[in-house]
C-alpha cells in the first residue's frame, strides 16, 4: 500500500489514466462489460467476474465476486485484481468507496442511451486498457452492423407493434417499457414498443390485448421453463392479439434484453427478420 502511494499520487496529480501499463488483473462486474473485455482480447487478464457475467462460457470457471449491485469489498480485494471495471449500476456505493480507499481503481462504464449504449462502454474499456485502436475497430464494426440493421429497418413496409416479455409464468408478464435496453433494441430494429410505461413492469392482460402487438419477443429461459413458445402464445391475453393469431414471436436470450453488448446486433438482426415477415403479412 505505502509503496504504491507515491505512484498513485503522481497519477492523480497528472490526472491521466494510470491503468495502462499496470493493468494485469481485472475484476469485471456486469455481463456486458465482461463480454467487451473478451472482445478486446484481454480475457486472460480477467481474474474474477460477477454473477451477471455468463458469456463467454469460460467465465463460469472464474471466481465470482457476487451480484453486480451487491459486491463485497473484501471479496473483490481477495481476487488480487488491480482494477474493477463494472456497469453503471455497480454497487453498493459504500463498498465502492471502500475499494477506492483500499487503492483499487474502480471504473464505472456509462449506461448510455439508445444505440450509443455500446460505444460508450467500449470507449471506457479502451481507455482503461489503453487500447484505443482496438476500441475504434470494435465500434466501427458495430456501427457497420448497426447501419445494415437501420437500412433494413427503414425498408420495413410498416413498423410492427412489439411486446418484449422478460419473464412470464401464469400472471401478468413483466414487459420492457420505455427507457430499457429491451425498448432500444426494438426501436433500432424498426419496431414500436407497445409498453408505454417506464422500466420493467408487469403489464396488465387487458392492456396487452388493447395494445394489439403484432409480435411477441420472449426470453429463452421462460420458453424452456414453460415447455415451449406455444404455451406463452396460447395465453388468453396473447392469443387474442394479432401476434397470437399469426403465431408471430421471436426468442432471445434474457441477457440480450437487459444489456447492450457485442452480441446485441445479432439480437437486433433476429428481431428485424421477424419484423420483415410480420410487416409483409
Amino acid at each position: 500500500m505505502i509503496k504504491k502511494l507515491p505512484a498513485t499520487l503522481l497519477a492523480i496529480a497528472l490526472a491521466l489514466p494510470v491503468y495502462a501499463e499496470s493493468v494485469s488483473k481485472i475484476a469485471s462486474a456486469g455481463g456486458d462489460i465482461t463480454e467487451i473485455l473478451f472482445e478486446f482480447g484481454v480475457g486472460e487478464k480477467v481474474v474474477a467476474v460477477d454473477s451477471t457475467s455468463i458469456f463467454p462460457e469460460t467465465v463460469n470457471d472464474l471466481p465470482s465476486i457476487g451480484y453486480v449491485r451487491e459486491l463485497s469489498a473484501e471479496g473483490v480485494l481477495a481476487t488480487g485484481a488491480d482494477i474493477l471495471i463494472g456497469s453503471y449500476d455497480m454497487g453498493p456505493p459504500a463498498v465502492m468507496d471502500n475499494l477506492k480507499a483500499a487503492g483499487l481503481d474502480v471504473v464505472f462504464a456509462p449506461n448510455g442511451q439508445g444505440a450509443s449504449r455500446f460505444a460508450d462502454k467500449v470507449n471506457i474499456v479502451a481507455s482503461v486498457l489503453d487500447m484505443p485502436g482496438r476500441g475504434e475497430e470494435l465500434i466501427a464494426a458495430y456501427e457497420a452492423e448497426l447501419l445494415t440493421i437501420k437500412t433494413r429497418a427503414a425498408a420495413l413496409e410498416r413498423s410492427p407493434r412489439v411486446l418484449l416479455v422478460l419473464s412470464v409464468r401464469d400472471g401478468s408478464p413483466i414487459a420492457a417499457g420505455q427507457d430499457t435496453t429491451g425498448n432500444d433494441i426494438i426501436d433500432i430494429a424498426g419496431g414500436q414498443n407497445v409498453a408505454t410505461f417506464d422500466g420493467w413492469k408487469p403489464m396488465n392482460s387487458e392492456a396487452i390485448i388493447t395494445a394489439a402487438p403484432d409480435i411477441i419477443v420472449m426470453s429463452t429461459l421462460h420458453v424452456e421453463r414453460l415447455g415451449g413458445a406455444d404455451v406463452i402464445m396460447a395465453r388468453e391475453d396473447i392469443a387474442a392479439t394479432p401476434a397470437g393469431q399469426n403465431q408471430s414471436y421471436v426468442i432471445l436470450s434474457p441477457q440480450l434484453m437487459l444489456q447492450f453488448g457485442p452480441r446485441s446486433p445479432e439480437a437486433m438482426n433476429d428481431l428485424i427478420s421477424a419484423f420483415e415477415t410480420v410487416s409483409q403479412g
Binding site: 454473477s51 451480484y67 451487491e70 422478460l166 419473464s167 413483466i174 429461459l221 437487459l258
Partner: peptide, 11 residues
C-alpha cells in the same frame, strides 16, 4: 435471493 440472477430477482 443472493444467488439469484437479475431476471430471477425481478421475478
Amino acid at each position: 435471493v443472493y444467488m439469484s440472477t437479475d431476471q430471477q430477482l425481478r421475478e
